[in-house]
C-alpha cells in the first residue's frame, strides 16, 4: 500500500468509526451483498494515558468497542473497529471500508465520507465557539502592602 493510500484508509476508517451511527445509516442505507469474516463482536479496549501527560504510559480504564470484518462479492475485504456496542454500526462501517476499495470509492467519498467529514468539523467548531465565548482574562488586583 502506498503512503497516500495508507493514510487515506486510516482517515476513512476513523471517520466511519466516529460517525453517529444513525447518520451513517441514513447516508448508506443499503449494504452490498457480503459474507462475514468476523461477525460483529463487542469487547473492550484498554485506554492508556501518560504520567504527567508526556511520561510513562499507564492504564486509564477500558472503553467498549465493536469490531467486524466482511468480504464483498468482488473480493474486497472491509474491517471496522468502532467505539461502543452498536453491531449494525460496525457492520456498516466495515461494508463502507470494503466499498472504498472498489470502483464505488469515488461515489462513497462524495456521498458519505465528505458529508460525514463536514458534519464532524461543524460539530467540533460549534463546541469550540462555545468554549471561546468563555475565554477569560484575569487581572491581578494590586494590594495595599505594595505601596
Amino acid at each position: 500500500m502506498t503512503k497516500a493510500a495508507f493514510e487515506g484508509r486510516r482517515g476513512w476508517m476513523s471517520l466511519l468509526a466516529k460517525a453517529p451511527p444513525a447518520r451513517l445509516a441514513a447516508l448508506l442505507p443499503d449494504l452490498p451483498a457480503h459474507e462475514m469474516l468476523r461477525s460483529p463482536e463487542t469487547g473492550a479496549v484498554m485506554v492508556q494515558g501518560r504520567v504527567g501527560g508526556t511520561g510513562a504510559p499507564f492504564h486509564l480504564g477500558e472503553m467498549t468497542v465493536t469490531r467486524c470484518s466482511l468480504r464483498l462479492g468482488c473480493g474486497a475485504v472491509g474491517h471496522a473497529w468502532v467505539q461502543g456496542r452498536d453491531k449494525a454500526h460496525a457492520r456498516r462501517a466495515a461494508a463502507a471500508d470494503a466499498l472504498m476499495q472498489t470502483d464505488r470509492a469515488e461515489e462513497m467519498q462524495a456521498r458519505v465520507l465528505d458529508v460525514l467529514a463536514a458534519e464532524a468539523t461543524a460539530a467540533r467548531g460549534a463546541r469550540a465557539t462555545r468554549a471561546a465565548a468563555t475565554r477569560v482574562e484575569f487581572f491581578t488586583m494590586v494590594r495595599g502592602e505594595d505601596q
Binding site: 473492550a44 484498554m46 492508556q48 501518560r50 501527560g53 504510559p57 492504564h59 477500558e62 467498549t64
Partner: peptide, 16 residues
C-alpha cells in the same frame, strides 16, 4: 467483555 486491544497512550496536548 473480551479485551480486544490496548490503545496508544492518548495525547492530551491534542485535546479539543
Amino acid at each position: 467483555l473480551p479485551r480486544l486491544a490496548s490503545s496508544r497512550p492518548v495525547d492530551t496536548a491534542a485535546m479539543a
